[in-house]
Amino acid sequence: MGAGHGHRLFFHGHSVVHRAPAHLKVLALVGFMLVVVALPRQAYVAHGAAALVLLAVIAVSRVPLRYLAPRMVIEVPFAVFAVLMPFVSHGPRTEVLGVAVSEPGLVAGAALLMKGTIGVLASLTFAATTEADDLLRGLQRLRVPDLLVQIMGFMIRYLDVVTGEMRRMVVAMRSRGCEPRSPRHWPVLARSLGALFIRSYERGERVHHAMLSRGYTGRLP
């Protein structure tokens, strides 16, 4: 989680999209993505329309594209794969800018790139307009099993605590002449990850004690 309000992907705002109930946003996101995935690969107009709908939502949410764009780097591995597809696929060849490429590969790569980009952008928009807490409540309202929602809540809460612990362990390792980046020291790193796991497990036990002490019976109020 970042400083101040919300999590790292959250963009503070008060737009209609921000205020919309989280469970509706989850449903809208999942529905939208199912439609985009189900579109025939060569339905370029339909893909364009979906992209326009998404851009309209972003415009209404007032989350600047400048904010979303750098966060889209997560798509890069898929994009690289999509770009390679026309070169490695079989099938009839066609010429693009004087280079012979596979035609089915070109179609598949383009489809992957379009669907992927729309999906990532839609998810980022959702993340930028929904607080983690609202998301959990939304999932609860959608009747996602309570235990799953609780586990997600704890994950969000303790992500910082555990990464902080990891950071301190790495600093302590470095201070004693161990460089976790060098493969020579990977065994040490693996052992320290094991230690981190045990520490987290023990913290889990302590948190559970603290919950029981306040009358926890298996359901978060």
Partner: peptide, 20 residues
Amino acid sequence: DDQLFLGTVRQDVAFGPANL
């Protein structure tokens, strides 16, 4: 950090009495 495990101070303080 073992005792405060919810999203806001309000939820954490309400946890015990809500269980009651």
